[in-house]
């Protein structure tokens, strides 16, 4: 019996729709050439790095998701920087690892480092407007349900904490609630919430850890935005918070997420089921490196 389709197809579908909508209706400052270069380069880097680290499977779907996210969020006029961001994105999955997991959400790392280091790339958070955002939100919620109900705790916590801080600030300032609503009606925030912070591989293994992690990301982003007035607060917040994930995992043990399916499904469970955490990983095993798992265990 064939299981349901890989949830990453759903992700690719959502991101591709958003990209087409962004390019055609919102006139994103991304040329078709830039889009093609991004997608091609992430696939090429994924293909090149896969054999280098001895993996068997070329995970093109994960790479494509990373590429689509890059197209949606990062802007640059230099194609070389687009290629650099693609390299950082894919390379971070393979090379920046600790405890059998990659440390950073790849797209987040690719964008954050490219923007910080070069100064020639930027994120345009205001370019989404508020049209169709509710539809996108529903889409994303659907994605969450389809994909990984067990790991939705991080998304749900963030969805409560981050807007909570905005509404709390508005109440404290005596601002009308239209202001936080406007601040939160943002496509980039939705992509961040449903495609980045929720990445099961780069979040802590334990539920407590994940909830604390989501609170940390939300709190830090709030501080960066309202105390340091940084327009890329979410990107930098996740980048900084991810550094602490190994510490979360050290102090708060829990089962590691794994996409163990990939065509091997002894219990004939549908892929959807396989995406769940099946076997708890003992603390001592954390230091081992399972390359096959690593290769297929990345969302982005």
């Amino acid at each position: 019996m064939k299981g349901p389709i890989d949830p990453r197809w759903y992700q690719i579908g959502v991101l591709a729709c958003l990209l087409v909508y962004g390019l055609s209706s919102l006139h994103f400052e991304v040329s078709w050439l830039q889009g093609l270069v991004t997608l091609a380069s992430v696939l090429v880097f994924q293909a090149l790095l896969t054999p280098i680290v001895g993996l068997r499977f070329f995970e093109w779907k994960s790479a494509l998701i990373s590429g689509l996210s890059l197209c949606l969020l990062m802007r640059s006029n230099a194609l070389a920087l687009v290629v650099l961001a693609s390299f950082l994105t894919i390379g971070s999955k393979f090379f920046l690892r600790f405890n059998g997991k990659h440390i950073f959400n790849p797209t987040n790392f690719g964008i954050g480092i490219t923007v910080l280091m070069t100064g020639q790339a930027w994120v345009s958070p205001g370019q989404w407007g508020s049209g169709l955002l509710i539809a996108v939100f529903v889409f994303c919620c659907g994605l969450m349900v389809v994909q990984r109900a067990e790991r939705s705790d991080v998304t749900l916590t963030f969805l409560l904490a981050y807007p909570g801080l905005f509404f709390g600030r508005a109440l404290w300032l005596g601002d009308p609630l239209t202001i936080p609503l406007h601040q939160l009606s943002n496509g980039a925030l939705l992509i961040f919430t449903f495609f980045m912070i929720s990445d099961p591989i780069t979040t802590p293994n334990s539920r407590t850890g994940r909830i604390l992690f989501a609170l940390l990301v939300a709190g830090l982003a709030y501080v960066l935005r309202f105390k340091f007035y940084n327009p890329n607060a979410l990107i930098y917040s996740l980048l900084i918070s991810s550094i602490f994930v190994p510490a979360f995992d050290y102090f708060l043990t829990g089962p590691r997420f794994d996409w163990t399916g990939h065509g091997q499904n002894p219990q004939n469970k549908p892929t959807l089921e396989v995406t769940r955490m099946e076997a708890p990983v003992k603390f001592g095993n954390k230091w081992s490196l399972n390359l096959r798992r690593l290769g297929i265990s990345h969302l982005f």
Partner: peptide, 14 residues
């Protein structure tokens, strides 16, 4: 326009 205008400088010199 419920909130103030916030800006950023980009690297775009087009």
């Amino acid at each position: 326009f419920p909130e103030d205008l916030m800006f950023q400088e980009t690297a775009d010199r087009s």
